[in-house]
Design a binder for these strands. Structure first.
Lengths: 213, 213, 213, 213
DNA sequence: GATGAATGAGAGTTCATTCAT
DNA sequence: AATGAATGAACTCTCATTCAT
């Protein structure tokens, strides 16, 4: 994993993992609240439960923390998605279930996703690329589900676009919450997005409303 | 307009407008490149063609510049949209034209839109609200076009959701360009998004592909 | 007068006097409130009723304003003292009257005196000397009154010390007002100070309490 | 003590005391020379023997330094006064000794006292009040000495006024030194002030000139 | 491995002063 | 004579980073 490229003067790998997890947890809390730039390394150290000196034993620059954080957020998303998605049993039903899981997840992780939208740009080119790759992996999973679950054929481009649309519709629920969440409950939002999607997909237009949550 | 709330020690209103325009232009260039936080007021002054002292004759804090900039970006969007949208002649054709104009515009203003996504959060609550209102106005216009152009009735919520979807699909072209623009040309992207949309709208499913640009 | 050494690019002497008077009036108001250093030249210009550009037509540096102001305060003191003191008719009665006038004056000019105490140090050596000379003139007047009014002889040093004591007892009423003015009314303060003084002066110890106010 | 309200990001209390002492020492030197406003925080840091960053580890604002300084000056005065005053053995002799000690002290601390006169006004209301309270404590001590040492009774107001007079006569030696110190040696000044005072106090008028220094 | 005091470059902001109009 | 926009040196304060203990 790329994250191993972040050097630490500590040797014990387990300790590194533990300290970095603390650090990420503290950082996420703070970034949600005030963003990366307005958060100081001292604050992160404090929120992580150790001293500023210790913080710098496990990273080299403040940007490392941002990277670790973004990385962790995507790992979290992937982990959750993977455990929820049943990629083995293709069916329209399944597509609906996947979308529901995905939207629920995005609801839970609203603020974390916001961090990605706002701060990824502050990463160095190389690390940014790495993080964005993870994002793309996520889209690929959606593509796979679509391909598997929709009987009649779609072009590659169609699949990709649909996947991307679903992807950001999940994010939108969070980053436009101030307006969307006034108009819709989460369930309404999900149901309506799914309905819309199904209308545009080829195939019979019945059998919705069954993939329970 | 709210922007009058930003105090300037200079009295000549025309001069204020001129200097602030220079300032916004300089700021946008820099914000595109390095974001708000990594840009210094001195750099903005320089890019605007005047001294740091002069800069502060026209604003009070660095955040004022961010506000002015966000505000200007939305004004620009609205202005362009208003002049392009023919809200008088409702027709499916027209809806297509509006979407095309909108997507083209979003292509042009990719980086400006990115600024909004990344920096609006840094605004104070009150100013943020003001800026987000402008965003919402934009969505309302899309809603109107949809209502006018689609013969068969849609519920309010459907209209709103469709408008929001179109809205961020426009943004997505910019903020996910590193992936989308590898797979699609702008025209392909637009055409496909429009096709998808039309499929989901009620009414005859023919007569696309004609609203030339 | 030394104040002519302050150069003005304006020629008309009357105009200079008028503008400088406005300036001093504005400056005193502001200095009372926030002191010399916390007051900006712009504020002084505004309080004086003209523009910053005009301000600088009548002085050369901000310190000039301080000098003019201190100078004016002393002129005001002297003027008032001279008109109130009857130096021609020496008598114990007269000494009492002079002291009363002086204390009343110091009560009126409390804040102006405070300015002197706080800001004279900010003057350049040469101008400071000039201002302090005026202060000394004031003490000399008190000395004269003492010499004239006290029948039995005092040494020069005694006279000087008594004059200096009276002088600062007047100031003290202002600069220690937060404590003195809680304990004494002005009239009590004056009466008590005079009583004390008379006790220490040689000569009959009667005939006080008559020099009405 | 109020000074604990000034926050430091350093935790070690002894270190805080040490660094602040350095800081106060540096600040006093500079304030004597050029006053608070003309002294920069960098200069203070330098004079204190550490960097600007370190300075700000021990205070939060420049005004904190002024407060600390004023506070320290008064502590110094009190400490010295307390150790010199023999409040246990009331006698006219003792009053004389106390006054002598006080005047000698004021001679030593001339410039420090000047700082108080000139800069206390720059403190925030609350801190100013605190500092002025210390001043008042000093006056109270003088009152006590007077009450204890003078056999025949004086009214409360008389005592208070005499104490205040002595108090500022001590200061006057410093802030009017340019004139007083030309006319008097310190010992002359003290002797004369004491003589004057005794003349005004009730009781036998002999037995001066003996309370050695 | 952990700590936290020390550092100083660099940030935002102010304001006395000038000068073209 | 009056104006006020322009200037930039200088100020206070912050914070990522280091390193001796």
């Amino acid at each position: 994993m790329e994250k191993d490229k972040i050097v630490s003067s500590v040797k014990d790998q387990e300790l590194i993992k533990m300290r970095r997890d603390q650090m990420i947890k503290g950082a996420i809390t703070l970034f949600k609240e005030k963003g990366f730039h307005r958060t100081t390394t001292r604050e992160i150290a404090k929120a992580s439960g150790f001293s500023i000196g210790t913080l710098y034993e496990y990273i080299r620059t403040k940007e490392d923390i941002l990277f670790l954080t973004c990385d962790a957020i995507y790992d979290q998303v992937r982990e959750r998605v993977e455990s929820a998605f049943d990629l083995e049993h293709p069916s329209r039903e399944n597509l609906i279930n996947v979308m529901k899981s995905y939207f629920y997840l995005m609801d839970e992780l609203q603020e974390e996703i916001l961090i990605l939208y706002q701060e990824v740009k502050s990463l160095k080119k190389e690390t940014r690329k790495y993080v964005l790759q993870k994002e793309q992996d996520m889209v690929r999973m959606l593509e796979k589900v679509i391909v598997n679950c929709v009987p009649e054929p779609l072009t590659k481009k169609e699949v990709s676009l649909i996947a991307n649309n679903i992807f950001i519709e999940g994010h939108m629920w969070g980053f436009r919450r101030w307006i969307l969440q006034k108009q819709f409950t989460l369930d309404e939002y999900i149901e309506l997005q799914i309905t819309m999607l199904l209308k545009m997909l080829p195939g019979e237009h019945e059998s919705l409303r069954k993939g329970g949550n």
